[in-house]
Structures are given as C-alpha cells and as structure tokens.
C-alpha cells in the first residue's frame, strides 16, 4: 500500500463475480478492465496462468482466478481486471479473469471482518476478510498473498525437463 491505511476512511472497491461468490479489490490497485481478445498462451506454464497479453506495450500475465481459488470454470471468462501489485512506483502488473465486474462500492477497512474458520474453501491466506454489502457477503482479496510470484512461477509439469523427447514422441507414433 502506498501509505498507511486509515482504517476509518472509506475507500472505493471494485467488486466482481467469480463462480457464485463476490470479490472486492481496492480501486487504487486497478488500472483497467478490459475485454480479453488477444491472449497469448505460454506452453508449459503454471495451470493458474492463462497466458500473456500486450497491455500498453508491456507484457502482462493473465491469471485464471477460477483455477487459483479452486472454482469450477463456468463458461468463458473474457473479462480481465488489470491490477498493479507493486506498492512503490514500479509496475508489477497482472490480469485477473473474472465472470463479471459488478459495482464500485465504498467501505472502510474497519468494517472488514475475519473470514469464518470453517465453511470457506478458499485458502484463508488469500483473503483480507469479509465485508457485508447490501446483505451480501463480499470477499476482500489479499493481493500480495494470492498472487505470490514464487508459487505462480512454478511450471505446470515440473518434471517435463527430465522427460526425454523420446518417450513423448513414442506416444505419438502411429501404432
């Protein structure tokens, strides 16, 4: 965060839908909401990564949020929220695919409550907490935990380097 958060001051959040749940991201971190048209897949990348896209001349990775939170994919998620994870001036951009961007809401950090111990399947580390907005529960994301580089940079097939081309090809050979 750029400055120490004043927990009494209201901040704006963008809410979006994923599966049947609602999530919120601080508007300060959001750069743009775009339609996913041109996405370049990276072979053998982590299953959480859908690919990369060209955003204002930079290469930005796009994270599959359904996979990340263990949700079942429901149709095409062609909306991406581009967020900047970096606290200081530098850019660390990622895109998050969501089903629908719903609203911009305001609440203060004080009103964020702890996530219930049981009943929530998302890794608690990824969440800042829960907030109630118009009788609906909204998960507030802890961006830095949810999109930790070391975990996301793992390859889909960590053993693929060791697999020899020979065996891969023999499977494809006409039998």
């Amino acid at each position: 965060m750029k400055e120490i958060i004043d927990i009494d001051k209201k901040s704006s959040f963008i809410t979006f839908i994923l599966g049947k749940e609602s999530f919120a991201v601080n508007v300060d971190q959001v750069l743009e909401i775009i339609q996913l048209e041109k996405l370049t897949e990276i072979p053998n990348a982590s299953e959480y990564i859908r690919g990369v896209l060209n955003f204002r001349g930079s290469i930005v990775p796009v994270i599959n949020l359904h996979k990340r939170f263990g949700f079942k994919a429901s149709g095409a998620c062609n909306i991406a929220v581009i967020v900047n994870l970096s606290a200081e001036g530098s850019d660390r951009l990622i895109g998050l695919t969501v089903e629908e961007v719903t609203d911009v809401v305001q609440f203060d950090y004080k009103s964020i409550r702890a996530v219930p111990e049981v009943g929530i399947n998302i890794d608690h580390e990824y969440l800042e907490g829960i907030v109630e907005i118009s009788k609906e529960f909204v998960f507030v994301l802890n961006m830095n935990k949810a999109f930790d580089t070391s975990e996301l940079s793992k390859l889909e097939h960590p053993d693929f380097i060791a697999t020899s081309t020979k065996t891969e090809e023999s499977e494809e050979q006409p039998g």
């Binding site: 370049t40 990348a45 060209n54 990775p61 940079s153 390859l155």
Partner: peptide, 27 residues
C-alpha cells in the same frame, strides 16, 4: 524483445516476447 516478467522465470523455452503489428504477442 521484452522480458516476460517474474512469473515466468522458471520457463526455460522463451527468452522474451515481442508485440506484433496486430498488437498480439509472439514469444
């Protein structure tokens, strides 16, 4: 050529990406 970024540091096949004329990326 631009770097792919830190999420792909373990990716050995590609050394970067480039924006093509149509705005898409090539690796």
């Amino acid at each position: 050529i631009k770097p792919l970024g830190e999420l792909f540091i373990n990716q050995p096949y590609f050394s970067g990406g480039s924006v093509m004329v149509d705005g898409e990326l090539a690796l």
